[in-house]
Design a protein around this nucleic acid. Structure first.
Lengths: 197, 197
DNA sequence: GTGAGATCGAACCGCTCGGTTCCATCATGG
DNA sequence: CCATGATGGAACCGAGCGGTTCGATCTCAC
C-alpha cells in the first residue's frame, strides 16, 4: 500500500529519517557492505523516495558524511567550550569525550576517515580533509590560548594524537587510547609552555 | 593459448607475482574497488590460477595483508636497528622513514588499517590488531631502553603518534605530519626521562 | 473538494560481481 | 618419453548491484 493510512507526509522529516538510518548502517557495514535495496528496507522507505531525496547512492553517502562531520565537530567543540577557558581543561574535556565514544558499543573508528579509506575519491576525500581541518582549528585555538610561541605546531600535534588515538582504540579495541593521547597532549602543552634548555 | 611457449613454469613464483600485483592494486583501488576479473587481467594470470593459489578473493586479501604487514614491520624495524642503540636516534630513524613513505607518490595511508576500515571483520581485523601490536613492541623496546619508569605507557604514546601521523599525512596530504609526530615523540621522551615537579 | 505531490511496492533493466568449469596447450620431473 | 600438472582463455552461473519506471494510494495545501 503506497502511503500508509495514518502517515504524516513530511518530506523534510523523511529525508532526515533516511539520513539517520543510513548513517548508522553505512558506518557499521561499510560503504560497499550494504546495498541500496537493503538500506531502503531497513530505513522503511522505498527506493523511489530515497532516489528522489538523494539522487544516487553516492549522493546519499555525501549527505551522510557531511552531516556526520558537522555533528561530530560540533559535539567536540561543545565539549571543549563547556569546560571553560583554561587550555588544559578544554583539552581534557575533548579527550574525555573521545574516551566515551571509543568505549561505546559499536565503535568502529571515525566514520569520515573510514569512508575516505574505502573510496579515496570525491566526495569522501574532500570531506575528510575538511573534517580534519575542523579539528585542527579547534586545537590551534586551544594552543593559541596557552600563549606558546608556535600554536600551529602544537595544534598539529594534538590533531595527530586525536587521529592516532581513534585508530588505536578501534583496531586494538583499546578505549584507553584516549587517556594515552590526553596525557601526551598535556605533556606536550607543558613542554611548549616551558621549553627545556 | 594456455601456457605461453617459452614460459618458465614455477608455481611459487607465479603465486608471488600475483601477490605483488594484487597488493598494489588493492591498495590503490580499495578492496571492493576492483574485481577478480580485472585483477587477473592486470596480473596477467587466469582466474583458475588465482583461485588455485588463494582459494577465494578473501584468501587473496588475507595473503596480501599478511605479507604487507610483515614487510612493513620489518622495514620499520630495520630503520630503527640501523640507527644504533640510542633511543632518540632510533625514534628519529623510524619517523624519518615514515616521512619518505608519506611523501611517496601514490601514498594512501596504511594498507592494513585501510583494509580493516573497509571490512571490519576477519581476516582484516585480526591482522590489523597484530600489525599495531608489532609497532607497539618496537616502540616499547625503544621506551624501555631509555630507562623511564613506565616504558609501556611511553610506547603506547609513540604508537598513537605513528597512527595519527599516517592518517593526517593521508587525508590532509601533509607528509610533514611525520615531523610533527617526531618532535612530539622526542618531547615526550624527554619529559618521561625527567618528569616535572 | 480538488489537484499536486509524496510515498510504497513491485517489477524491471543492464551490468558486474565472485566463483566454477572445461579444454587445449605446454613445461617439467621421473 | 610419457604422465603429471600448471596455465590461459573463454564460456558460464546465480546473485546482487545501482538505478528506473509505473501505478495505486494516500496527505495536504489551497
Amino acid at each position: 500500500m503506497p502511503v500508509p493510512k495514518g502517515a504524516t507526509l513530511d518530506p523534510a522529516r523523511t529525508r532526515e529519517a533516511i539520513l539517520e538510518s543510513a548513517t548508522a548502517l553505512l558506518y557499521e557495514r561499510g560503504l560497499d557492505g550494504i546495498g541500496v535495496a537493503e538500506l531502503c528496507a531497513a530505513v522503511g522507505a522505498s527506493k523511489e523516495t530515497l532516489y528522489r531525496h538523494f539522487g544516487s547512492k553516492d549522493g546519499l553517502i555525501e549527505a551522510v558524511l557531511e552531516n556526520r562531520s558537522r555533528r561530530v565537530l560540533a559535539w567536540i567543540a561543545d565539549a571543549a567550550a563547556s569546560a571553560g577557558a583554561a587550555p588544559k581543561a578544554r583539552l581534557t574535556a575533548v579527550f574525555r569525550a573521545l574516551a566515551t565514544w571509543y568505549a561505546a558499543p559499536g565503535f568502529r573508528g571515525c566514520a569520515i576517515v573510514n569512508a575516505a579509506a574505502q573510496r579515496h575519491t570525491s566526495p569522501a576525500t574532500p570531506i575528510a580533509a575538511r573534517h580534519l581541518a575542523g579539528y585542527l582549528d579547534l586545537f590551534t585555538d586551544i594552543a593559541r590560548a596557552t600563549g606558546v610561541p608556535e600554536p600551529e605546531a602544537l595544534g598539529r600535534q594534538f590533531l595527530v594524537l586525536l587521529q592516532g588515538a581513534t585508530v588505536v582504540a578501534d583496531h586494538l579495541a583499546a578505549p584507553e587510547a584516549a587517556d594515552t593521547a590526553l596525557s601526551a597532549a598535556l605533556t606536550l602543552l607543558e613542554a611548549a609552555r616551558e621549553p627545556r634548555p
